Amino acid sequence: MDTLKDRVCIITGAGRGIGREHALLFAAEGAKVVVNDLGGAPDGSGSDATPGAEVVAEIRAAGGEAIANADDVSTWEGAERLVKQAIDTYGDLHVLVNNAGILRDRMLVNMSEAEWDAVIQVHLKGHFAPLRFAAAYWRDQFKAGVRVPRSVINTASTSGLFGQPGQTNYGSAKSGIATLSIIASAELGRYGIRVNAIAPAAATRLTSSLVDQTGEERDPDAWSPLDPSNVSPFVAYLATADCPINGRAFFVMGGEVHLFHPWRIVDSLSKDGTWTVEELQEQAAGFQEFTFDYGHPLGPQA
């Protein structure tokens, strides 16, 4: 306990699912938590401040410190207000957990412009905008001589890192978030800011397809690897002041944590001079024969 004592933490999308579990654990570990949740439907429509307020009430009833925020983090103004509220309320900001998201699944040829734009907006811009305002504040603090460890944990997905048909919008945003994390870690490390990403697997209202489809009855009291609370301890570890990890992406599910390897070159052709199309017809087709071991923890068909 108290591994996050007095760390001021923003958690977006914290009214339900994985975000809620993050907020409860962070508070139990001594953090001062800003519970952000717009309270929309799984597809992003509507808004309801109730879920976020209920999480705050639960934290306070357990003796923790928390405030609610219902700003839309996918907007520039909402992200700025969220970061400002944390600083104005608690005097500082140490941790940002970007977790908010929506789903609008559709096969590529049937996807509408609105379905593409909404998912990219909430996920990718909804990660970038809070990070931008938090990082600007942290940079100014660092230049002013306030050298405090800061941490950002972004939420990617195996849908982006491994690929999932029917989710070109979601997967593109999530792989973009992983790349955002790596680049941000390189830019912000000089200011004492660590940026990492997780790709969680858990049974929530956004990931119901992950739930066991065998039809067998489960013991509600038995431990399940798809319980969202399994993901939060590793996120809390990444948020601790003395965690050394920076610029990494992880798959987290149940009792497992797996480190991703970013893009790397695995095969090549070379010659002195410029290739002709005919030469490439003869030699480049072999690239298709190269097989990849993605190392997917859930198996090749997951």
Rank of each mutant, 00 (worst) to 15 (best):
L259N: 06
R248C: 06
W263T: 15
W275L: 09
A236T: 01
M253Q: 13
L226S: 00
G255K: 13
I265M: 11
G295Y: 10
P233W: 01
F290W: 10
W223F: 09
H258T: 12
E217S: 11
P297T: 07
V266T: 15
A239C: 01
A241E: 06
A249P: 08
K271S: 08
A239G: 02
F234T: 00
G273Y: 12
E282Q: 08
N230T: 00
W263Y: 14
M253F: 13
G273R: 13
S268T: 07
F290L: 14
I265P: 05
G254M: 02
H261V: 15
V235C: 04
V277D: 15
A241Y: 05
A249F: 03
A285H: 12
A236I: 01
V266A: 10
T291M: 11
G255N: 12
L269S: 03
Q283C: 13
M253Y: 12
D293E: 14
W275H: 01
F260K: 00
F250E: 01
F290E: 09
T276H: 04
V252M: 02
P228Y: 03
P233M: 01
D293C: 12
K271H: 04
R264F: 14
W275N: 03
V252T: 02
A236E: 01
S224L: 07
D219R: 00
F260N: 06
E282T: 07
E279D: 11
P228W: 00
L280D: 06
Q283H: 14
Q288L: 12
G286D: 06
H261A: 14
C243L: 02
N246F: 10
S224H: 01
F250C: 07
K271C: 04
I265L: 12
T291H: 15
D221A: 10
L269V: 13
H296T: 07
V235N: 03
I245R: 04
W275Q: 06
W223M: 05
I245Y: 11
D227L: 04
E282Y: 07
P244C: 07
A285M: 11
E282P: 07
S224R: 09
V257E: 02
F290V: 14
D242Y: 09
I245Q: 02
E217H: 10
A239D: 05
P233V: 01
H261S: 13
R264K: 15
F290N: 12
